[in-house]
Design a protein around this nucleic acid. Structure first.
Lengths: 216, 216, 216, 216
DNA sequence: CATGAATGAGTTTTCATTCAT
DNA sequence: GATGAATGAAAACTCATTCAT
């Protein structure tokens, strides 16, 4: 209604505006409960425009998915590039993650909290997006240890790195809820705590000091 | 249609049959995408029976939620009761968890993978159910460390136990996906691995050997 | 559940119990919104019994209709029998009406406030029941005037008596609502007031003193 | 299907078309028995349009209610404005009423024959609409008598005017049925008759010539 | 006499999607 | 580039009614 809105806006920008709104709505309501109507209204345009630009509800959701996954992957990469030592790299990655979630809660929810409810084609995209995130983490874990591996330590196999990556991402996701119940905690504080819990253990395990049910 | 199906079944049994089916369907499709029609058909009865016994779609979902949460909580308790040392107790808990998920995948999905899409009243129930699970884990963590605390170690504060519990549940949930990509792994194997990664680190951290960005 | 209810009750009595409840429910909810479920439950029996005794929802409603119409017609007749002069007869009829409504509000509602919503066969019954009530009133009006007619007055034709009867019943029904807004008023007071408004006019009109737009 | 129907119709007009049809259907079937399906079909559009424009079945019904009440109230006001003497005013009002019902039978039924079956929120609206109608009539009665009151007559109290209004509206409503059984009668004829029956009596009563059981 | 178990058919309502302008 | 008008399809839920016991 306002002049601002009525002004003809170039396609690229409109698309981003729509996706911005869509991420919020998909995050709040979940894929199925979200309605294109609401998204169009909040974006200040008519439904046909949404369909013109994004093709379908699925197309819109996939666009959201990709953009948020890209942003998070980039955040990981930027963090890893700046840090030096392997452990610092992982720590930087975790910090980047919690910072991302703190700032883009909705994006994370769209990426990781859309349940089983999705159609075949969307499920594929979700899998891809999550895989991209997990790869980043697995990379941080694997490369880090590989460098240290020079001195004769037991190296992490692919599978192990993957195991750790899944654990970390799962833990991080869950801590996202923990944070809501402990509002004082800064993203960096959470990252440090998680680092402590995992890295220290990882080091020792790599050195061969494993835990077993029969140990004393 | 078959005689078996047409036979009148007492309420208690029918209710369980309906819930059995519903857990499967809610797990596969998610709350919103699941249709009561499908659940009724798979249960071999008509929709009105579902409404007669379970009140509403929400009521049905909540019944599923509670039953699965109860089962999991009981699995934790049984496991903890049998084990002796604190670390063994946690290990037993983790084993119980992965065993549960291996056997009741659908139940776990209903419990932990229903996303943002839920109505106020359901969200409350979900929160309760998850809280019950987290409490069990936090209990295993806290009590375990408390016993060892006798020898002068730093004790885990409430908050820390909660932090670890959230991490563990999140990691375990995520590893649920990892398992699907590595079909050879037994639930017990996964539990042992996770135990190793976390417990060894926890012990050291409690002893004061923390990790920090500036350390060597 | 209580022994009282469980006791096998002879058909006639059960039927009356069911109709008692049904009148209340039909009155409160209207024919369509009333549910056989609710009626059965309030009557303390199972639905099949309702169907066994009253055949169908329509049958149940018609039974209600007839019983309440009978009661009201009888009330009119009793009143008319006791009174002497024609005007007193009408007055007694009106008093009987308002007394009936005060005591059997639900019955009146079932008789006169079930709207157009009814099926062909019910509509027929409703028409019959209302006709019976109107006949009583028209009788009071007509007979009353006829007696007085002996002295040379203009007699009320069939049509006129009917006109007055419709007016009176409609007014009386409407005053039923007025009474609710003026709780102090006794049924007898209302009857007297209505009598005053109508009878005095009727007398004069019969004598030829009509009102016309052009009169002074 | 025809081109006429397919043509896009602006909202305002469609809304009126829908309401037109809805008044007919609600009148014929009653609120509960009426189905939105039937209304949509008779209006030549699909159900979603009905919901888009009128919100819900309740919303649709309330829209009908308000429109018809407005129309009737306006008819009263127009009639009263034109007439001069108080008795003429009331007579004009009655004529307007019977003319309205003759032309908008369905509207009247929607206004006054929707029984006990209605939900809280609708009941409120119905009460409002009826109150509006009753106020018009009470106004005609009260104001009329007040003017004449100048010459020392007993004035009608609020309560009395209300009593008369309820009686008149109820009688008029009921005569609506009488008319159907006597098709020859013109609305104006009915109005005149009712006027005669009531006004002549009212005048006399105001003058103190009341009827009482004991009079001769 | 009495009932718990069961259902076919219908209701209101919502949604993703498209057409005509 | 933009939108108001329109719909097919499907969802949750309810109800009168009947069987088997």
């Amino acid at each position: 209604m306002t002049e601002e809105r009525r002004r003809r806006v170039p396609r690229r920008i409109r698309e981003q505006q729509i996706i911005d709104v869509a991420v919020r709505v998909f995050s709040k309501r979940g894929y199925h409960a979200a309605s294109v109507d609401e998204i169009a209204e909040l974006a200040g345009i008519s439904k046909p425009m949404v369909y013109l630009y994004l093709e379908s509800k699925e197309g819109l959701f996939i666009a959201c998915l990709r953009r948020e996954a890209d942003r998070l992957v980039r955040a990981f990469q930027d963090a890893a590039r700046e840090a030096g030592r392997p452990d610092e790299r992982l720590h930087a990655g975790l910090r980047a993650f919690f910072a991302f979630v703190a700032e883009h809660r909705d994006g994370w929810v769209v990426l990781y909290r859309q349940a089983s409810e999705l159609s075949e084609s969307i499920a594929r995209e979700v899998a891809l997006a999550r895989r991209a995130v997990l790869s980043q983490v697995a990379g941080l874990v694997r490369d880090g240890v590989r460098e240290e591996g020079g001195d004769g330590r037991v190296q992490l196999r692919e599978e192990d790195a993957d195991f750790v990556a899944y654990s970390l991402v799962g833990a991080a996701d869950s801590l996202t809820d923990w944070t809501e119940r402990h509002p004082g905690q800064s993203p960096d504080g959470v990252a440090l705590r998680l680092m402590n819990m995992v890295w220290v253990g990882m080091e020792r395990v790599l050195r061969g000091e494993t835990w077993s049910p029969e140990h004393g």
